[in-house]
Amino acid sequence: MRNRAITPRRCPTIPLYARLVRYGFRKHATYVWAALAGAFTNSVFGILRAYILIALWQARPGLAGYDMTDAITYCFVTQAFIGPMQLFGGGLGLPERIRSGDIALDLVRPAPLQAWTLAEDAGRAAYLFLVRGIPPMLVGALVFGIHFPAGPGRWLAFLTGFALGVVVSFGWRYLIALSVCWLLDDRGVAVVSLVLTTFFSGMMIPLHLFPGWLGDLAAVLPWAAMVQLPTDLYLGKAAVAQTLALQALWAVILIGLGTAGTRAIRHKVVIQGG
């Protein structure tokens, strides 16, 4: 009986994570105005960026295998990704909890820290996809006209790629968050991450435009798996199986590194005593 009071009703695994996803969703749903403000900003920037791409595609029609509408679509799809993929960084409460020592509490929870955080982050991504993802697309469709994936197969490929992109983005942000354990201050790493993510994900400009070896390199880096690859799936410009495989590979690598990192901080926390 006493035992039950201390660890109240252990949830079975699947319902536990399902509940965490829902909590992550609800936690962010509290700040609906902030999310809508974000959607507004993303839409405005979408329009401004679209004009730059229009000017470029007017000068070079058919560049990168995109037609004009593809380029405009690219711009609004990538703006829609900013919220769910947290392309500007953050989204995880971990750095704060590591600094305050609350992380010790998280580490003794009845589920692994990484899986726990991933479940919450998935809920957050789902919410922001709805509130910050869809409005920029609608604005793009109304102002310029954009493509939508043709047929359920394309939709399925895109949504799978999108989900994998969220996992890759989580894997990356999780590693950045864990680095606080060693560096104590996460601002420097956060800026480095921001630079790498915004530039190499294809959020600013399609990676296909990068010249020479830079383009070849950028296309296989993990950041491409967040924006460029899912967007190409959306536009139907990439081989589906190959693209999904590359994304899955990065998801596995980053999650694996995260697991190793979690094990390492477990020791670190024990040594520091919280």
């Binding site: 470029l56 000068a59 530039f199 990068f210």
Partner: peptide, 17 residues
């Protein structure tokens, strides 16, 4: 980064508007 974007654009074209 913003400059890098401008340079990438002009790696693909000689004039913009």
């Amino acid at each position: 980064i913003d400059v890098a974007v401008i340079l990438v654009i002009f790696a693909n074209t000689t004039t913009l508007a």
